[in-house]
Simulated assay, not measured.
Amino acid sequence: MILCDFLIDQYERKTKWNNITEGNASFRIEEKYYKYLDKTSFLNQAKELESKKLLKIKWVSGYYNEDIEKLKYPLTSMKDFYRIANRKPKYEEIMEKKQEIIDLLQKVKTSWIREYLEKEVLKNLIDEKYLKKYKVNEAKDKKNTLLYQCLLGLDQLDSPIFKRVFSKRYLKNSKLFEKQLQSVVLRIARKYHDGVEEGMENSDVLFQLYIEEYSQELHIKGSLLIKADGITLDTGEYHYGTVLNSLTLKNAVILKNQKINKILTIENKANYMAEPYEAGTLVIFTHGYFTPLERDFLCCLKESLEDKPVTYLHSGDLDYGGVRIFQYIKSRIFPDLKPYKMDIETYNRYISCGEAIEERTLKKLKKCREPILQDVIDRIIETGLVIEQEAYL
Rank of each mutant, 00 (worst) to 15 (best):
I254Y: 11
G236H: 12
S167Q: 04
L313F: 15
A270I: 09
E128S: 14
G280R: 13
N86V: 13
E359P: 04
I380E: 03
V310Q: 05
L362D: 06
S77W: 03
R114F: 10
L75A: 03
D343C: 07
K90Q: 08
S304L: 09
G384K: 03
I220E: 04
N257C: 06
E359V: 15
N245W: 00
S51C: 01
L264M: 04
R28I: 12
F162L: 15
Q106E: 15
M1K: 09
V205Y: 04
L154H: 08
L54I: 08
S304K: 10
E92I: 15
K90V: 05
P371M: 12
V283N: 02
S223P: 09
D378W: 13
F297D: 08
I126R: 13
D307I: 14
D375Y: 07
I357S: 04
F162C: 07
Q156G: 05
R187C: 08
D158T: 13
G195L: 14
A189L: 04
Q389V: 03
I29M: 09
P276T: 01
F177E: 05
W112P: 01
K363C: 08
C300M: 12
Y116A: 07
L43I: 11
D378H: 12
E115C: 06
S77C: 01
F177C: 03
G241E: 06
R169D: 15
L206T: 08
Y170R: 07
K191C: 05
N173A: 14
L209K: 06
E92M: 11
I387F: 02
K140Q: 15
I2G: 13
H219A: 11
E370N: 12
F177L: 10
Y312L: 05
A228E: 11
I333T: 12
Q389I: 06
E382V: 00
E31R: 10
A139I: 14
L225G: 03
A228P: 00
L365F: 02
T232M: 07
K133S: 15
S51L: 07
E30R: 15
L43C: 02
F285S: 08
F326G: 01
E198S: 09
K256W: 07
V165K: 13
I68W: 04
K142L: 12
N202Q: 15
I211S: 01
P292R: 07
N202S: 15
M95F: 10
Y63G: 00
R379S: 06
C353S: 10
R332Y: 10
I357D: 05
E370A: 10
E306D: 14
S246T: 12
I329K: 03
E115I: 10
G316Y: 02
R169Y: 11
K175L: 07
K179Y: 04
K302G: 01
K56A: 12
Y11P: 00
A139T: 13
A270T: 12
V184T: 15
L305R: 00
I94C: 09
T242D: 07
L146R: 10
K256E: 14
K129Y: 03
D375Q: 13
E22F: 11
F285A: 08
P276A: 05
P339N: 13
S77K: 03
L154Y: 06
E201C: 03
S352D: 15
H193R: 10
P292Q: 14
D336M: 03
E48L: 14
L37R: 09
K259S: 09
K338C: 13
K250I: 11
K262C: 14
L225A: 12
K221A: 02
D296C: 08
Y192E: 00
L249F: 04
